[in-house]
Simulated assay, not measured.
Amino acid sequence: MQPSLIREAIATAARAVVLPAGINKLTTSGYVPDSVLAPHFFVGEYEQVYDRAMARGLDELTFTCRLLVSRTDDRSAQKVLDDMLAGSGPASLKAAIEVARGAPGDYALGGLAHDLHVMRVQGYRWYEHAGSTYVGAELMIKVIGEG
């Protein structure tokens, strides 16, 4: 698996979310950006476990992705964040990203991996990024594929 290609594919899948009227469209990147235009989703750090199956048969990557939302109004910003962290619905990042799993029996992320799973949300808090403060959270995404 090529982590840089997978990072970009996850960011592309996240763009499918549909935010409520009046909210800026979600911007995304497959890397940690210098600055963001909120709301923004990006693929940050990752951990890689080699050799989950013998002879380089399977590797496992766990990506820490961040979602940052403008805090112009604390309450409305957290509502938008909550909508995107929901397990389902038009604004759900989990639902949008997991569409990239493909049909049963297909490879995920357009053939880049065997499968992926948005596992959990963590770190719901205030984040400072490039000198600005945002309300945000992290999504942990596991991707498995050939080593």
Rank of each mutant, 00 (worst) to 15 (best):
M1N: 01
L5H: 11
E8Q: 09
E8C: 05
I10K: 08
A13Y: 01
A13R: 01
R15M: 04
A16H: 10
G22C: 08
I23M: 07
I23W: 03
K25F: 02
T27N: 13
T27F: 12
S29H: 03
Y31A: 11
F42S: 05
G44M: 07
V49A: 14
D51A: 11
A53P: 07
M54P: 12
G57H: 08
L58Q: 15
D59L: 09
E60H: 08
L61D: 04
R66W: 13
S76P: 10
P90A: 07
L93N: 06
K94H: 05
A95K: 15
A95L: 11
I97A: 03
E98T: 05
R101F: 03
R101E: 13
R101Q: 15
A103T: 13
P104N: 14
A108D: 02
G110R: 12
D115T: 10
L116K: 09
H117T: 07
M119Y: 06
V121M: 01
Q122E: 15
Y124W: 12
Y124F: 09
Y127P: 10
E128S: 05
A130G: 07
S132H: 08
S132C: 01
T133I: 12
Y134A: 01
E138M: 09
L139P: 02
L139N: 08
M140I: 15
M140F: 15
I141M: 09
I144L: 08
E146V: 03
E146C: 02
